[in-house]
């Protein structure tokens, strides 16, 4: 009776002939399944869409007074906070890739796949790609929402395109981490326990206030060591500042580091899982 909850609808996509397909085709087939699976559960992604918009709406109104703090870098809190949507899309990618993969492991889909010529690595890649594609779509929607609410993108059209790229890359980082954790734990329950921490990483960053306007010293320290701060600051700079080389470089460095860790982690965990049989 729980299968209705977890079973992705697109199981049938994996046909017996797929085994003879090349790796990219395998990934494509499996990624489509992953996207379909994620989109067929609106109760799964609606909150991830609604929550950031909600926070954006409420906080940009509730915190509009913060713009009156001397030195606040934006005219509207909405412009300042728009980056929350891209971050949420990224967090959501963790759950899409991670939970999707954990369920595949729990339900034995991964083991079944291992019996076919298909590669389990293809499944991992596919779950990550699926999650990233969804995040990419979400980022486009959020940019449109930004434009519709007259957010002034200071870096212009090119900046918006770069924002899209950075948002997608951020989502990739989180998806890879999610997949890694799924491969390590093999349990969706364990994975669900991680989300609060991701959520914390978002709130314990410079999300709500630029670093130099943070009063509490302990919080300043936390934001400095929190990689999410750099992602937030990098994307935000494109929206409210223009072209801030330093913020962008810092962000790219952090993204490169995190994606490296994520990929290495996935590869290692996958190898270990295969070694166990």
């Amino acid at each position: 009776m729980t299968t209705a909850v977890a079973a992705p609808t697109a199981r049938g996509v994996v046909n017996p002939h797929a085994g003879s397909a090349s790796l990219p085709v395998q990934v494509l087939v499996l990624a489509r399944r992953s996207i379909k699976g994620a989109l067929s559960r609106p109760q799964g992604y609606m909150p991830a869409v609604i929550m950031p918009l909600l926070l954006l709406t409420i906080n940009s109104s509730g915190l509009s007074d913060a713009t009156r703090i001397p030195g606040f870098p934006a005219d509207r809190f909405l412009d300042f906070l728009l980056v929350i949507t891209f971050m949420q899309a990224a967090l959501f990618a963790t759950s899409n890739a991670g939970l999707g993969l954990a369920r595949d492991i729990e339900e034995g889909f991964m083991d079944r796949l291992a019996l076919t010529p298909m590669r389990t690595g293809a499944l991992v890649t596919a779950q990550i790609s699926g999650a990233v594609v969804i995040a990419f779509g979400a980022a486009i929607v959020y940019i449109i929402i930004g434009l519709a609410t007259q957010v002034d993108f200071h870096s212009g059209v090119l900046g918006v395109l770069l924002l899209l790229v950075l948002a997608t890359w951020t989502a990739f980082c989180f998806a890879a981490i999610g997949a890694w954790l799924a491969l390590r734990s093999g349990s969706s329950e364990a994975l669900q326990g991680i989300f609060p921490l991701l959520f914390a990483s978002l709130f314990l960053s410079t999300l709500n206030m630029p670093r130099d306007l943070i009063e509490a010293e302990w919080f300043q320290v936390v934001t400095r060591f929190n990689p999410v701060s750099y992602m937030v600051d990098g994307m935000r700079s494109l929206i409210i500042t223009g072209w801030d080389g330093r913020a962008l470089l810092e962000m790219v460095a952090v993204l490169a580091l995190v994606s490296g860790i994520g990929i290495a982690g996935c590869a290692r965990a996958l190898r270990r899982r295969q070694a166990q049989g």
């Binding site: 915190l63 703090i69 709130f203 314990l204 509490a216 936390v222």
Partner: peptide, 14 residues
């Protein structure tokens, strides 16, 4: 605690 820390820590100037 996330909300408390996040808000109390970040928003003191408000």
């Amino acid at each position: 605690l996330i909300f408390f820390g996040g808000f109390a820590g970040a928003l003191g100037r408000v």
